[in-house]
Design a protein around this nucleic acid. Sequence first.
DNA 1: TGGGTCTTCAAACGTATGTTTCAAACAGAC
DNA 2: GTCTGTTTGAAACATACGTTTGAAGACCCA
Lengths: 225, 225
Amino acid sequence: MAQSDTVDRILDAAEELFAERGFSETSLRMITSKAKVNLAAVNYHFGSKNALIHAVFARFLTPFSATLETAFDDLEERCDGNPPTLNQTLWALTESAIRMPQRNERGISIFMRLLGLAYTQSQGHLRKFLEQEYSQPFGRFMRLLKEATPELTAVDRYWRIQFMLGATAFTMSSSDALRDILQNKLGVETSVQEIAARLVPFLAAGMQAPDKLLTPPPESKVSVA
Amino acid sequence: MAQSDTVDRILDAAEELFAERGFSETSLRMITSKAKVNLAAVNYHFGSKNALIHAVFARFLTPFSATLETAFDDLEERCDGNPPTLNQTLWALTESAIRMPQRNERGISIFMRLLGLAYTQSQGHLRKFLEQEYSQPFGRFMRLLKEATPELTAVDRYWRIQFMLGATAFTMSSSDALRDILQNKLGVETSVQEIAARLVPFLAAGMQAPDKLLTPPPESKVSVA
DNA sequence: TGGGTCTTCAAACGTATGTTTCAAACAGAC
DNA sequence: GTCTGTTTGAAACATACGTTTGAAGACCCA
């Protein structure tokens, strides 16, 4: 009880601060004082700051990857035999993320922001940790994408997947800020669910765009030369 | 001569290290030792580490924004009266970036990566600096996008622009790594120009995707309930 | 109640950071 | 050649960091 309380308080504080400020910009002292916990508790319970970062990710990524696996199972069963479509695959992922049990209303934003940070902040140890812990659902998602876009060459698919990941990671990682901006500019409230509902069609359309050769630069100095 | 040599050496080293490792992960000592320059030189010439970051951005962003303005001038002149299309606008931006005079062959990658970092690393001072220095070309780009997509609602356009920025910033900011991965996986070499040639159609297609209501989640627990 | 383990705490450790200091070296003008 | 302002240099500054220490406290089962 006492232990898990301290551990959870540290994880909660770390999660929030990491999402707000990034990893290297967040010190253990910030975390422990926000968690109202002694500084040494982090090293006692987790061993190091890097291990704490891993624990923060594991806490939401492990249940998420389980949810995702069953969502993919359901999807493939429903399609029995036929490969799921691109839209179905993207929605399976999106819904798994959205429907995850949240600790609080900002849960999804934090979750997304941390994923985005993991992708962009060049923390070698984190990338290695995520790769060896969660390669299975990631690989399965990639396989589904491949089967859903048989018309693409491997190279085209590779780059378009990167574009999709980028659009998602960036948007979600700053979704709070972007929502605030929109609120100020147009007076519109937006939920994470609505962002996802706009993102998925954008990604699907980009993924299925006509071949690059069909839309070269218009009459310009480059193509004329 | 002596001064500008030291200043440039600092800027070169800082640019490269910032692009490689991020801002807070790069110390002044790393920079000065890579530049073969005394530690105090940074504070002497720039005043502070933050000011150095600003200088790094200003060195490539100022000529770039000039190039971009004339590219937009050319484009609008060629279209006389009519608003440029989405493709034309995106290509004007892309070509301005690609055709910038580079200090070396990695110039574009560094340029892109720094822009991506500016977007993701939550460096308040940097965002403020960029906003007040380069709001004009950015605003003009936004205006062109708006005129090129009159069919979109303001809210839809807002989000789709964020998706575009995300896909671009992310891809370009890790373009070196992504190119290496592709080289290892499929044995394919890719230039930054080719990435751009694939990215623009992806973005244009996403931007012009059918309305979000037309592609709701397929038959799933959510939409059924 | 006592003994052993797990947990907390205040304090200190060593290292790295951004910044400052001030004397030495240098430049160009007279 | 000397003087003036600019630039470099080695060293130190204060501060913040992640981590370790060892004693005090809390807890649980015998």
